[in-house]
Design a binder for these strands. Sequence first.
DNA 1: AATTATATAGGTGAAAGCACCTAGAAGGTC
DNA 2: GACCTTCTAGGTGCTTTCACCTATATAATT
Lengths: 203, 203
Amino acid sequence: MRKGIRAVLEDEPEIERLVEAENGEAAFDKLNKEVFDIALVDIEMPKMGGIGLLQKVMKEKIKTKIVFLTMHKDKDVFDQAMNAGASGYLLKENAVDDIVECLHAVQQGGYFISPAISGYLVQRLQKQAEPLSTIPYVDQLTNAERAILKHIAEEKTSQQIADELFISPKTVENHRNNISKKLHLSGTHSLLKFALSNKDLLK
Amino acid sequence: MRKGIRAVLEDEPEIERLVEAENGEAAFDKLNKEVFDIALVDIEMPKMGGIGLLQKVMKEKIKTKIVFLTMHKDKDVFDQAMNAGASGYLLKENAVDDIVECLHAVQQGGYFISPAISGYLVQRLQKQAEPLSTIPYVDQLTNAERAILKHIAEEKTSQQIADELFISPKTVENHRNNISKKLHLSGTHSLLKFALSNKDLLK
DNA sequence: AATTATATAGGTGAAAGCACCTAGAAGGTC
DNA sequence: GACCTTCTAGGTGCTTTCACCTATATAATT
């Protein structure tokens, strides 16, 4: 595997130097002593492992970008890697084909994710973008109640909302109560908590 | 372009039928009359456009998955497409190489994003994952204060926090006050609002 | 005509949080 | 020893929210 990648990279004129390391610790030593643009790291690496190396690199504020190579399409590993700050995530099955494009993208400050993995990213985004309508009972709210809810999500007090809508603070209070009942919320500041938790969804 | 892709797809034994449409409206008519697994759509399509087609497909609850083809690496267009519910986003430059893999992934309920585009997804995720340390003044908090703040973010009252930590509710109140001062927060429930807004960052 | 839903407004009492105080105990620093 | 910070605990007064009431005007529905 390493030989195949090395062969491809040696053909690239833009690559000035090509250095290899046997394991995680040896790799970190080299990254710590000398400045490299990009490190291509096997995630299942002996001693420290790829993600451990990345965490050390981030901690020491070494500017070298880390691109991971892996055989497995494990979602958890991928999540860990991206959370830790990886710049690229390449499946070995695609590596030889995509490596040059990947290094270009990363060199220019971008990211490169093997397409077979990119679905995980989409899922993570869509989880956060669930529509308001999926929250139970929200569809039972009237227009006035919805309007009040939006203002609550904007961190306004009942008094402030009343001033803005030219209605009595008592009316706002009543709407709050009705909203709480419709959403089956109870307890102290539960409505405020709900509104803030679903801030993004309230547009 | 279309001929190249057609040639590749005709070689695939798993593809039972291959139907083409001249523009967005014609495509929607066909998707509406007959059930297809996947539609490969040029985003810059005459009449309606690719994203318009996707929105209509979603609205009518047609189960056909939509994969977009495009020449441009425009971030806004990509965002629109993914928000609308696209299953795939293929750059034309990679299309012939990746199309088969793409269709396989989508057919199995997954997603496929051209790697040159996948960086946009990472950026969107990282925007939401900004570290807690970037919030001003947070580093001035003591350990006890940080602990209290986490509990507040978990939507607990001072009384509840006091019970869990075996301290007086008044102590919790005092910590709240000190936290508010250190974070330069003031006003009603400002601390609760802060804690909830930064919930994810408080781990 | 009667009913229902909605928006409006008010009352009361309780719980929670905020702001501003004091103060003791324990720890480290100069 | 004097000083500072942190954690602890309490007091007082105020605002906000909550929960549970009543009540009127209006519009839509039956």
